[in-house]
Computed example of a mutant assay.
Amino acid sequence: MKNFVEQECEMRLLIAPGHSIGVETRLSYDPDDPYAVHVDFHTGLHAPVTWLFARELLAQGMFGPCGQGDVRVWPVGTGSRRMLCIALAAPDGQVLLEAPSALVEQWLQRTYRRVPPGHETQMLDLERELCGLLGKKA
């Protein structure tokens, strides 16, 4: 049985100043892929839209602006109104989302209980990964 760390939440898709719509989202962390987080956006299409990026990027974004290119993260607001902005860019366009900081922070803490920061390499089976890249059996 896999031991994923998942969290459902509603993010806000900012469509214009002062206007946003809710997007049901699932944050997912797999200890077998210890550096990455998966974010599934349920847009009403047949399958969710999934973005994959570094757990460390999300964690650093809780405290200040970080990221370059396709994914950027930064905090806004204070106290109970604190949110986490996530900007995603793809060839087809860009989106800006707001996520509840407290919920994301609690979820990150749960991922750290599974794989503490700095211990990610202990979770990797490098021989298996290398064989997979080379098309050989482990």
Score class of each variant (00 low, 15 high):
Ile21Ala: 11
Arg55Cys: 05
Leu103Asp: 14
Val23Gln: 00
Tyr35Ala: 06
Asp33Val: 14
Gly22Asn: 04
Arg82Val: 00
Trp107Ala: 03
Phe63Glu: 15
Val95Phe: 01
Val23Tyr: 10
Phe53Pro: 02
Arg12Ile: 09
Val115Pro: 01
Leu57Ala: 07
Glu24Val: 01
Cys66Glu: 11
Pro75Asp: 08
Ala36Pro: 00
Leu97Gln: 08
Met11Asp: 01
His42Lys: 04
Val5Asp: 01
Leu126His: 07
Val71Ile: 15
Ser20Val: 01
Gln106Leu: 10
Gly44Tyr: 02
Pro75Asn: 06
Glu98Met: 12
Ser28Gly: 00
Ala102Glu: 14
Ile21Asp: 01
Ala99Glu: 06
Leu126Gly: 01
Gly44Cys: 03
His19Val: 12
Asp92Thr: 15
Gly44Arg: 10
Val115Trp: 11
Glu6Val: 12
Ala138Ile: 13
Arg12Asp: 04
Asp40Glu: 14
His46Glu: 14
Trp107Arg: 02
Met1Asp: 04
Gly118Glu: 12
Gly79Met: 09
Leu88Gly: 05
Pro117Leu: 10
Ala138Asp: 13
Phe63Thr: 13
Pro31Phe: 06
Pro117Asn: 05
Gly135Met: 03
Tyr35Trp: 13
Pro116Ser: 10
Pro100Arg: 15
Ser80Val: 15
Gly77Ala: 04
Leu134Met: 08
Leu124Trp: 09
Asp30Met: 05
Asp125Tyr: 07
Glu8Thr: 00
Asp30Leu: 03
Val115Tyr: 05
Asp32Ile: 09
Asp32Glu: 11
Glu120Tyr: 06
Leu134Pro: 03
Arg72Ile: 02
Pro100Val: 03
Ile15Val: 14
Lys137Tyr: 03
Tyr112Pro: 00
Gly93His: 08
Arg72Leu: 15
Trp51Phe: 14
Pro116Gln: 12
Ala99Ile: 04
Gly93Glu: 05
His38Tyr: 14
Gly18Phe: 08
Arg82Ile: 00
Gly64Ala: 15
Ser80Met: 12
Gln94Phe: 02
Arg113Ser: 11
Pro65Met: 10
Pro75Thr: 08
Val71Asp: 02
Met123Tyr: 08
His119Ser: 14
Met83Gln: 11
Val49Lys: 06
Tyr35Cys: 03
Gly67His: 07
Asp125Lys: 08
Trp51Cys: 02
Pro91Ala: 05
Met83Glu: 06
Leu103Gly: 08
Trp51Tyr: 05
Leu103Met: 11
Val115Thr: 09
Arg82Thr: 06
Thr121Cys: 13
Met11Gln: 00
Arg26Pro: 05
Pro91Val: 02
Gly77Lys: 04
Asp30Val: 04
Met11Pro: 00
Arg81Lys: 11
Arg26Ser: 02
Lys137Leu: 10
Ala47Pro: 00
Ala102Cys: 06
Glu129Gln: 07
Ala138His: 13
Leu57Trp: 13
Val95Ile: 15
Tyr112Cys: 13
Glu105His: 13
Leu124Asn: 03
